[in-house]
Nucleic acid binder design. Structure first.
Lengths: 324, 324
DNA sequence: ATGAAAGCGCTAACAG
DNA sequence: CTGTTAGCGCTTTCAT
């Protein structure tokens, strides 16, 4: 900047004004400065700008895993909003490990990001308190923060969606509906279990519930156990996209009535098409990012909790006749 | 840092040493400093560190679209290597727009990232020359840089993979094999066309080639045209994952012999399973990131060009009997 | 409309 | 093993 200034025959501050598009520079002077910038191939050192101004124009995003289509969709939507606001996105995958979640958040904070969007892996977020007081904007997505932390949160209607799936199967005559889902320590899994249970009412039978991380072998074992029951399930409700795919694989073509939570690519091309309760990851990302920038603009108010709707997509698997 | 220093009764530099784990601090002094850090809730200002040291400990990644499973897998692998090296990842999607690619790269450079991994959208990368001279490490992935720019590049054996697919179909008796692929302006598409053509030799017929972006309607039209030919194709070779899925959808269950480039989730559960030439996006990301850190360590030498192998996975669709 | 001076928080270089 | 000094490149504040 100093070099540009002397090349253009102005003071350093004038160059700063031109670079930042600040008013109060004579058009001709500005032109001269721009010429010098081009000539020298100058580009502003953002680190210095950040150090002085305090604004990094950077947003941090912590998710479970970018390689998961759900979070990939969410990431892309967040990224688009972030770029639109002239900021850049630092992102990291926690891999469902609370320690890693915390490390990522703290590293982002050390870099003084303006705001953070977190899909939490753990359930203790008291470590965020200092950052929140320091003015870092935080939005939780997909899952709410742990007790004692009150920040904007965007989730979907997990219980309602699960209930919708169960009602759909009941309307097709099923009374024995199994639920295969993630560990209920994960918020979304617990909520979906709640919706499943409420929609079943007195038909609820804990023997039909199996919750754990969806390994192929584990799901196979669970299905074997379920179908070996005296009163086996006539339909399945799977608790997330990965679970649905693993279950379909374990079923090896057996035509069992099934509704899955989460839509996924090619669900329509399966035979039969897979009926799902779909959520919209891109929508969730967009809403979370916009909420964040809303806060950044200082438009305060108490922490908001947005609940996004889900959507039943009927494709065939949920409407199969009861087996045997 | 100043506050921590006076709280611990030491000089600022000593705090700096402790924070950076530099040797030459008495364990007891270090302990006192750490206590002061905890007490005050101090965390180093990274922007200041960057301004002074010049190292941002940040890597930039430009891809087409995180929401595409191929790039999502690549991103995750890059991220893992980056974190392992104590760095953070700034990422952005170009959406196949050369302008956006360039903007992202330039923005990353303005932030003085230590290195950049680029999946290029355009084919003119002369704008990188200044950055390269300034010492920014750059690695291209999936596609090579345009003319005149010589940097490390990681690609897969596109032509070889396409040839492998064609040979597989020829071994199953096909002589009329259509190719549905992306616009040949995209490097990978052009290479796959080349491999297809070479493997067909005198059987090559331009009437069986259709290259454009894979819109559902476009693919439907192309298939209609191909199957209406006097001498229609008996098998299809699709040029990438998205194309394969779109084609399967357009086929509406018709059992046409098909081999696709790129593996995809649920390819094994289709009826029949989809035979593919698989590449490994995570491997590509890992190799690209490691190449980048190799450069960053100053272990020079001329620009490398790594070509990753592909892998034919036989699942049924490529071995179907010739229709009719 | 332009400029001079101060200083953001840290690390590099050099003393002691 | 510890401390002092300078200054990274910019924005802020205040002056002209």
């Amino acid at each position: 900047m100093k070099d540009v200034a002397s090349a253009a025959g102005v003071a350093l501050k004038t160059v700063s004004r031109v670079v930042n598009g600040e008013p109060g520079v004579h058009p001709e002077t500005a032109e001269r400065v721009r010429a010098a910038i081009d000539l020298l191939g100058y580009s502003r050192n953002e680190s210095a700008r950040v150090l002085r101004s305090g604004r990094t124009a950077t947003i941090g995003l912590v998710i479970e895993d970018v390689a998961d289509p759900f979070y990939a969709g969410l990431s892309r939507a967040v990224e688009d909003v972030v770029i639109e606001h002239g900021c850049l996105l630092l992102s990291g995958s926690s891999g469902e490990e609370p320690t890693r979640e915390r490390e990522l958040v703290e590293t982002f904070c050390a870099r003084r990001v303006d705001g953070i969007i977190v899909v939490p892996a753990g359930d203790d977020h008291t470590y965020l308190r200092a950052e929140l007081e320091a003015g870092t904007a935080v939005v939780f997505a997909d899952r709410p923060p742990g007790a004692g932390i009150d920040v904007d949160t965007v989730i979907v209607d997990n219980a309602g969606g699960a209930a919708r799936a169960v009602r759909h199967l009941r309307e097709h005559g099923h009374r024995r509906i199994a639920f295969l889902g993630d560990d209920p320590a994960i918020f979304t899994a617990a909520e979906r279990l709640r919706g499943y249970r409420e929609a079943l009412g007195e038909l609820y039978d804990p023997a039909l519930v199996s919750m754990r991380s969806p390994s192929p072998a584990g799901v196979r074992d669970d299905l074997d156990r379920l179908f070996a029951l005296d009163d086996p399930p006539t339909a399945l409700f799977t608790g997330n996209g990965r679970y649905t795919m693993t279950t379909l694989r374990a079923l090896r073509g057996r035509r069992v009535p099934l509704v899955g939570f989460d839509d996924f690519e090619l669900a329509d091309l399966m035979e039969p098409g897979v009926t799902v309760v779909a959520q919209d990851p891109a929508r969730m990302g967009k809403v979370a990012a916009e909420l964040l920038f809303h806060r950044l603009r200082g438009e305060g108010g108490p922490a908001e909790r947005v609940e996004l709707p889900v959507n039943l997509i009927v494709r065939g698997s949920g409407e199969l006749p009861t087996p045997r």
